Amino acid sequence: MIDSTNILALIISFLIGGLAGYIYFFGLWLTLLKLPKINNPGLLMISSLLLRNGFVMSVFYLIMLTASWQGLVTGLIGLTLMRLMLNRRYGPATA
């Protein structure tokens, strides 16, 4: 049964998922900007990947602990929508 507490938890999970997505993809953008200027790009890519994935997995683990699987799904929707919004905003220009 859905009540106001569950709806509030889902809204918060959605917002936290979107924020986690923003941080994840902003970190990816910063990593890609630094690649041409660094001597060991493989190490930068691997360390950035591990750091970003560890952060997002920790956030979603905490969401799942507090809002169960429904919160996890809404958080993933928030992350995916943030990815789509950032891609539309900063993606490659179309002709």
Score class of each variant (00 low, 15 high):
residue 2 I to W: 09
residue 3 D to G: 13
residue 4 S to V: 11
residue 4 S to E: 07
residue 6 N to A: 12
residue 6 N to K: 09
residue 7 I to E: 08
residue 7 I to D: 07
residue 9 A to H: 08
residue 9 A to S: 11
residue 10 L to P: 05
residue 10 L to K: 02
residue 11 I to W: 01
residue 15 L to Q: 06
residue 18 G to S: 10
residue 19 L to W: 01
residue 19 L to K: 05
residue 20 A to I: 01
residue 21 G to S: 07
residue 21 G to F: 02
residue 22 Y to Q: 01
residue 22 Y to W: 11
residue 23 I to A: 06
residue 23 I to F: 03
residue 27 G to T: 01
residue 28 L to D: 06
residue 29 W to K: 08
residue 30 L to V: 11
residue 31 T to W: 04
residue 34 K to V: 05
residue 35 L to R: 10
residue 35 L to Q: 11
residue 36 P to A: 10
residue 38 I to H: 10
residue 40 N to G: 07
residue 40 N to W: 00
residue 41 P to M: 08
residue 44 L to I: 14
residue 45 M to I: 15
residue 46 I to T: 15
residue 46 I to W: 08
residue 46 I to S: 13
residue 46 I to F: 14
residue 47 S to G: 03
residue 48 S to E: 04
residue 49 L to F: 13
residue 50 L to E: 02
residue 51 L to Q: 11
residue 51 L to W: 13
residue 52 R to W: 09
residue 52 R to V: 07
residue 52 R to C: 11
residue 53 N to F: 13
residue 54 G to E: 06
residue 56 V to P: 00
residue 56 V to N: 02
residue 58 S to L: 12
residue 59 V to H: 04
residue 59 V to F: 03
residue 60 F to R: 04
residue 60 F to A: 06
residue 61 Y to G: 07
residue 61 Y to Q: 03
residue 63 I to G: 01
residue 64 M to Q: 09
residue 64 M to W: 05
residue 65 L to Q: 10
residue 65 L to C: 06
residue 66 T to W: 06
residue 67 A to P: 04
residue 67 A to Q: 05
residue 67 A to W: 04
residue 67 A to H: 05
residue 68 S to D: 14
residue 68 S to W: 10
residue 69 W to S: 14
residue 72 L to F: 13
residue 73 V to S: 05
residue 75 G to C: 12
residue 77 I to D: 04
residue 78 G to F: 04
residue 79 L to M: 14
residue 79 L to V: 05
residue 80 T to I: 07
residue 81 L to C: 04
residue 84 L to Q: 08
residue 85 M to I: 15
residue 86 L to G: 02
residue 86 L to R: 02
residue 87 N to F: 09
residue 87 N to V: 05
residue 87 N to W: 09
residue 88 R to K: 12
residue 88 R to A: 15
residue 89 R to V: 13
residue 93 A to R: 14
residue 93 A to W: 03
residue 95 A to F: 12
residue 95 A to C: 03
